[in-house]
């Protein structure tokens, strides 16, 4: 018995990358590069979504969009060189070609957050997938209550988007606290874990949504601290990361218990992960 034989829309094969050029490349910290890529005919993206970026002949990796969703002139991605593909991506220069598929996945719950206070907890490079959400929160500032960004990172030299954070702090209606794990003696900011900042935020519990993104260990502790501060599991959203090959739910790699991180995430409401975050090797 044959399946329904619809027209095969090859032009829309989700596995074939579109060839795009790098418009701009700039350093954003140690081993970290932000690439602006021409958008071509890419669909608009939601804050929190990701693209699959290919270096031809090397491979493909998922990279979150880190720019403004309203910027239709470029697709911005912030990449840290950790493996062969991400390293090759960070070495691309202006004018070079790369492959792009996407955008994939869901996004941060921007609509649900309207009328609420929002606290964003970003660990390390986890600030990159949160930045589009920050842009959107700030551009529609009147729709949201108090906005707080807590950014934890390794050392002052590792602070992502440092100058932009300073500018937000000066000019925008957003509370920002940055903390590092260790610092040279001229550092005047916080030193210590990001979870400690959570207890100092004046939450209006019952009216606050938390967006959390960072290393999984840090997210576990951040969730615990947010719950201690009075937030319910259903108000905490986190962006998960797993090995990803296809981004469309075919390859099976990104499974995290019952979910495919690519298809059902990467953003999950904490109560919907059913405690899996606390199990080893899931």
């Amino acid at each position: 018995m044959a399946i329904q034989s619809d027209k095969l829309a090859l032009a829309h094969d989700p596995m074939t990358p579109r060839v795009m050029r790098v418009l701009k490349r700039c350093h954003d910290g140690p081993q970290t590069v932000t690439l602006d890529i021409e958008p071509g005919d890419s669909a608009p993206f939601q804050p929190g979504q990701f693209n699959m970026l290919s270096v031809f002949g090397v491979g493909e990796v998922p990279i979150s969009l880190s720019g403004a969703p309203t910027d239709h002139d470029r697709l911005r991605h912030t990449i840290r060189a950790v493996g062969p593909v991400s390293t090759a991506l960070t070495r691309l220069s202006k004018g070079e070609c790369l492959g792009l598929r996407g955008p994939f996945g869901n996004g941060w719950p921007m609509q649900q957050a309207e009328g609420h206070d929002v606290v964003l907890v970003a660990g390390g490079l986890g600030l990159a997938p949160l930045r589009p959400a920050i842009y959107q929160l700030l551009s529609e500032r009147e729709r949201y209550g108090r906005i707080t960004l807590l950014h934890g990172t390794r050392s002052p030299a590792d602070i992502l988007f440092h100058r932009e954070i300073m500018a937000w702090r000066r000019h925008r209606n957003i509370d920002i606290e940055v903390t590092v794990d260790h610092a040279p003696p001229d550092w005047r900011g916080h030193v210590g874990v990001v979870t400690r900042l959570i207890s100092s935020v004046p939450f209006e519990t019952g009216n606050t949504l938390a967006f959390v993104c960072g290393p999984e260990v840090m997210m576990r502790f951040a969730i615990a601290a947010l719950k201690d501060a009075g937030l319910g599991d259903e108000t905490i959203y986190l962006s998960m990361e797993r090995n990803m090959k296809c981004a469309v739910g075919f390859c099976g790699h990104c499974q995290f218990g019952p979910v495919f991180v690519c298809r059902d995430g990467p953003v999950f409401r904490h109560d919907r992960l059913g405690g899996l975050l606390n199990l080893k090797e899931i």
Partner: peptide
Amino acid sequence: IERLHGTQIQLLDVYGDP
């Protein structure tokens, strides 16, 4: 205890190079 837990996370160097 809070400082011990904080130190524990810092020791993990979660933002460091894999």
